[in-house]
């Protein structure tokens, strides 16, 4: 295991801020390594609910922001 990976792992285990950063940087950094982050199946393999999070299909179903509607149930 590389040194960076080890340090990163410890940071992630101990720091909530690092976990937030990890989540928000994950896709961009994968992209930098040549991963097609627009492909549902590819990103699903990485876990983290990414298939459900960032897949294009969600945009079709819920394009509308329903800001300020009455959600009542």
């Amino acid at each position: 295991m590389s040194r960076s990976r080890k340090i990163l792992r410890t940071k992630l285990e101990t720091s909530p801020t690092a976990r937030v950063t990890f989540m928000s940087s994950f896709l961009n950094l994968l992209k930098e390594q040549g991963v097609d982050v627009d492909d549902d199946a590819t990103i699903a393999d990485f876990g983290l609910h990414l298939d459900l999070t960032d897949g294009k299909r969600w945009f079709n179903g819920s394009a509308a922001s329903s800001a300020i509607i009455t959600i009542t149930e």
Binding site: S2, L8, K11, F22, L29, Q33
Partner: peptide, 13 residues
Amino acid sequence: NAAAFFENMLVEC
């Protein structure tokens, strides 16, 4: 590539 990914992520974090 994984090593590069972890290095970049470490910088971010």
